[in-house]
């Protein structure tokens, strides 16, 4: 079985975002990192390879030249090779454009399983896996917390959904998006990091894949959410109850 695991270079959202005078995101002092949700996808692919179920794991990224750093981070966890679809301005690409590029990669690479993080922590769209599934005509299992490929060419996927959990069975090839409880991603070992440096990393472009993209969604700026002020500290449960009843009036 061949697995394609996607990764994205995201802004490190632990820092406080700053805006420029024209309401754009000030990216000058923001660090980038591998999208945490993609780490779960990569980990799952690597585990399937370690179990002998996957024969090849390809790490794929649609991103700028600099994204090779995040791809090497993923390759240090495991996997055989990288494929970067280089785009100059990731910011202006919308989800549908990225899904179209990935669909061309799937057509070329013909994986049996594609695993994506369910969302990226900076733009938080939670769309690309589902769009990719439609564009490739493949079944999807999103928000996966359990993935069990069986021998008959199907996989059983446990999904985290509102109100509980749900199991679906999808025929391979299929598109899976990873949720947080799918596994616990490993830290790359030093030998892993050394090995990753030598793994092949091919760079291509949307044009070379025969895809021309024109984003449908256009960003028109950002704003900061209204700040919430810190309130007061109370000294006792009795004082808290008094405040809730008589000041906030939220409890009778």
């Amino acid at each position: 079985m061949k697995i394609l695991a996607t990764v994205k270079r995201v802004f490190d959202t632990d820092g406080k975002p700053k805006l420029t005078a024209d309401a754009k995101l000030d990216v000058s002092s923001i660090d980038c990192k591998l999208n945490p949700f993609d780490e779960y996808g990569v980990e799952e692919a690597v585990r399937l390879q370690e179990k002998g179920i996957a024969t090849e794991v390809v790490i794929c990224c649609v991103g700028p030249e600099e994204a090779q750093k995040e791809m090497r981070t993923a390759l240090a966890m495991g996997g055989d090779r990288g494929l970067l679809v280089k785009v100059n301005d990731t910011e202006s690409l919308d989800t549908l454009s990225i899904a179209k590029i990935l669909a061309a990669v799937v057509k070329k690479e013909k994986p049996d399983l594609v695993i994506l993080g369910k969302l990226s922590t900076d733009s938080e769209n939670n769309q690309v896996g589902q769009m990719l599934a439609e564009l490739t005509g493949l079944p999807q299992a999103t928000f996966a917390f359990k993935l069990t490929p069986d021998a008959g060419g199907w996989a059983i996927v446990g999904r985290e959904v509102d109100g509980g959990t749900s199991d679906v069975k999808v025929k391979l090839p299929a598109i899976i998006t990873a949720d947080l409880r799918l596994n616990e991603p490993r830290y790359a070992s030093l030998p892993g990091i050394m090995k990753a440096k030598k793994k092949p990393l091919e760079i291509t472009t949307p044009e070379a894949l025969g895809v021309s993209v024109k984003p449908a969604i256009v960003g028109i700026g950002y704003e900061l959410p209204p700040a919430r002020k810190a309130g007061i500290k109370v000294a006792s449960v009795a004082e808290l109850v008094d405040k809730l009843r008589n000041e906030a009036k939220v409890i009778s």
């Binding site: 896996g129 589902q130 599934a133 564009l135 509102d162 969604i217």
Partner: peptide
Amino acid sequence: STTGKDFLPRAAARMDAGMIS
């Protein structure tokens, strides 16, 4: 919801529609 987030992007791709989450 987890349902809307699951099917609507798939429908959007089918309609060649941009999507707002």
